[in-house]
Design a binder for these strands. Sequence first.
DNA 1: CGGGATCCTAATTGATACTG
DNA 2: CAGTATCAATTAGGATCCCG
Lengths: 120, 120
Amino acid sequence: MEENEATPEETGVSAENDPSCYCRLGGVMDLLSRRYAMQVVCVVGAVGPARYGEIESAFGDVSSSTLSTRLDELVEAGLLAREQYAEIPPRVEYELTSEGEELCSRLDPLLRWVREREGS
Amino acid sequence: MEENEATPEETGVSAENDPSCYCRLGGVMDLLSRRYAMQVVCVVGAVGPARYGEIESAFGDVSSSTLSTRLDELVEAGLLAREQYAEIPPRVEYELTSEGEELCSRLDPLLRWVREREGS
DNA sequence: CGGGATCCTAATTGATACTG
DNA sequence: CAGTATCAATTAGGATCCCG
């Protein structure tokens, strides 16, 4: 009880006295910590319904196996929706689910900041 | 010209026609994609000047080598500042640099959303 | 207390080739 | 086009020990 326990209302947005709430984050953080994952979400968010080839070419260099894995994971996590059209040639489109959009709206400021900071 | 090419001003914040700007992001994204990296930034942001032990205990399970590596990387990237006091016992404090605070302000909504989504 | 050094294993990524 | 399968290599993460 010797701590400075200001009420949550007083500490405001940037300081809670339970920092561990940021740490024990499981599945989604692990997913987002994989290569290209955050970028894929934002690219699909920016393009709208995006075909595999579009996504691939947005990243100059990514192996198809890696990108394919990432897309599968995001679909399975309920963040992307995959629609396959029975056409010749085959067409597949990915788009954000509503949860994916929620995520994207939080990722977007981050990626933009990173981009400006890196200069490219 | 058959595309619906609204002007960038009209498409607004969520859709640019250059999605590749999200993809070719280098160093910092690689750093943030490592385990606990984003969480560390937010924990330090939440705690303020944070000692190694505080950070460590916020994550129930993390090996000291991993956390130590992550802290070093964040310091080297200019996102955290490390201050070492020549006392006995030794004391070290980490805090966000101004760039780190910028980052934290963008990470915070993300982590909070993840936390609510996961339920814990 | 706050790590660094070392070693080792698990996990992730990429290259390549091939398919519906 | 939109991937999958397989394999190899890298890398990251964790355990352990120890030091200032």
